[in-house]
Simulated scan of single mutants.
Amino acid sequence: MKYLWLFIAINTLFSCSSAKRITYGTNTTAELQKILDEECGKTKNGIVGMSLTVLSPQLDIDFTGSSGYDSLEKTDLLKAEQPFRIASLTKVFVATSILRLYEKELLSLEDPISNYISEEHLAILKKGGYNPEQITIRHCLTHTSGLYDYAEGGPEYIEEASKDPNKRWTRTEQIQFAMENGQPHAAPGKEHHYSDTGYVLLGEIIEKLNQSGLAEGLRELLKFDELGMSATYLESLEKRPEGLLPNVKRYMGEIDASDWDNSVDLYGGGGLVSNTKDLSVFLQALFNGRIFDYPDTLDIMLLKKDFDDKGEGLPEQRLGFGSIVGKKSGLEVYMHTGFWGTVFMHIPAYGCSIAFNNTNDGDSEVLQRTIDYVLELGKNKD
């Protein structure tokens, strides 16, 4: 999974008391904007622009802000409301949609994917050395399917995609690419290996069971319109909402990939466009009973799954989320990261949702400082 360093950094922050105590003010808007501006103003970290939302009714925080620019060209200042491709954060939305279908009794998490995917895809998987009858929906959700990751299993996919940025990829081509460029990692359920391939298959299952396109399925199952998530849409598979500001640019190093056909990361592994406010609104809704019909569905989503090969300080795997518990604080954070420098997380102890986006995926301490501020406010409330 990309950005494992971030999990490690947050785990350290949650686990240790800071040797250098920082004194923060109680004006949350001013303090959080100051963090953004100070980090964006550092000349050595390569930061071009950042946007941030922090929502915590419990701590009286309702902040959305930005600093810097929306592109490497630095021609336009970054506005806090600007949308961006969220990449793998989409997987949390897909996992939540699968659980909504579970609530509707349209599937069981232990069902094999062979019950739902097309005959064409079944044949491709079998030819690639997999047994779809043994791979369950839960295996795909927890990245324990053994499926090779077509997107980041190796450098081949990005190399191929960069040859023709305008190519319109299909789900079938991406599954086939996984078969041609990698081998099964392990038997289903035995090992954890991050896999976009499993999530594009989950996207197919949503389409089949919701009897709609993936965009319509996500919007309906997750109540985007009801929640007021007006900046969130599945790019190229549904109409872009009217009135949105231009998207924040997307880069691979110095390469401007903003105009690459978004099918390169679509169909379930990625594909959604959103902004930090909508992402935090979604997390608030998810953790406060406004998406699932039954309270115990969230418990199912957050059930911990351990693996023998999990490294020290790395996240526990949940359905869609990774999670970390601070060794000393005992606080838990649920989170996911995305390829383009996107992160969102929820801290249940303080009912706090945080979403962050980097224009160019530079190195900053915004998240660490933001969490430190939240913890300080929490201590004062306790």
Score class of each variant (00 low, 15 high):
T337K: 15
H346P: 01
F344V: 01
E312I: 07
D363L: 13
L283C: 10
L303H: 04
D361I: 06
K327F: 07
P348Y: 11
M301R: 01
D299C: 02
N288G: 08
H346M: 12
K277I: 06
M345P: 00
L331I: 13
I324K: 06
E312V: 09
L314H: 07
I300W: 03
G320C: 05
T276P: 08
D306W: 14
S364N: 14
T342C: 05
F321C: 02
K327G: 14
C352W: 13
Q284G: 11
F339I: 03
R318I: 07
K305F: 12
L298T: 10
T359A: 12
Y334W: 09
D308N: 09
T359Q: 09
R318A: 06
D308H: 08
P295I: 00
L303F: 10
Y294V: 02
Q284R: 00
D306E: 14
Y334G: 07
Q284N: 13
E316K: 14
P348K: 04
L314G: 03
F282R: 02
F307N: 08
V325A: 09
S323Y: 12
L298S: 04
D308G: 13
F344D: 00
P315Y: 12
G330S: 13
G351H: 06
F307L: 13
T337N: 13
P315G: 09
A355Q: 10
